[in-house]
């Protein structure tokens, strides 16, 4: 383990994770909104927002899958030191981190079972760009219209068809994040 892996965590874990969770909660509850987070300094190419989400939500009880572009020794060490999350294959993961192309095909990830739809993966997708320009969204948490820039529409439509099963997604870019629960319906472009 390199010494760099030991830095970049929360300085004041209980307060910083509380603020980060509120942003993550609002993001997941209001698809199409973008939230600013801070406090983590993970190794490149992981974004600050992805680092914050992992520090806030992952621990030794949440197996994590790293996509190919994130599966680097520095990142493995950083996650292991700060969270203790076991690094696993996509099928066994409760959380996954990567660029969209790393995580394909997304049907490898757990979508829960019909009686326990909560036993599903949460994907943290690194985006080159994150904006509210993109396909229209509708569903719980959305009043009127919302839209969000998407890595790919078809996969999220397929995911919605499994409802109430399905994976949930955070899109991250730099210090910003947006949530995309399985309940969101992605309209035609």
């Amino acid at each position: 383990m390199t010494p760099e892996a030991l830095s970049g965590g929360f300085r004041d874990a209980s307060i910083q994770s509380a603020r980060a969770f509120r942003a993550a909660l609002e993001a997941m509850a209001r698809p199409g909104t973008i939230w600013q987070v801070e406090g983590a300094a993970p190794p490149a190419p992981m974004s600050v927002a992805s680092g914050v989400l992992i520090l806030t939500l992952c621990d030794g009880t949440t197996p994590l899958h790293l996509g190919a572009s994130m599966d680097l020794p520095m990142i493995r060490d950083w996650i292991t030191f700060h969270t203790g999350a076991p690094l696993v294959a996509a099928e066994a993961a409760r959380f996954a981190l990567g660029h969209w192309q790393d995580l394909m095909p997304v049907n490898r990830f757990a979508i829960g079972t019909p009686d326990y739809p909560d036993r599903s993966a949460t994907l943290i997708v690194e985006m080159p760009d994150l904006s509210t320009a993109g396909p229209q969204l509708s569903g719980p948490g959305i009043k009127g219209n919302a839209s969000l820039s998407f890595p790919e529409v078809a996969a999220f439509r397929a995911n919605r068809r499994h409802f109430p099963q399905g994976f949930d997604t955070y899109l991250t870019c730099d210090t910003r994040l947006a949530g995309l629960p399985r309940s969101t319906i992605v309209e035609d472009v």
Binding site: L25, M28, P117, D118, P140, P164, D168, P181, R182
Partner: peptide, 9 residues
């Protein structure tokens, strides 16, 4: 968060 993603479950 899972509760938010699956309203009412």
């Amino acid at each position: 968060l899972k509760g938010i993603a699956i309203p009412g479950y």
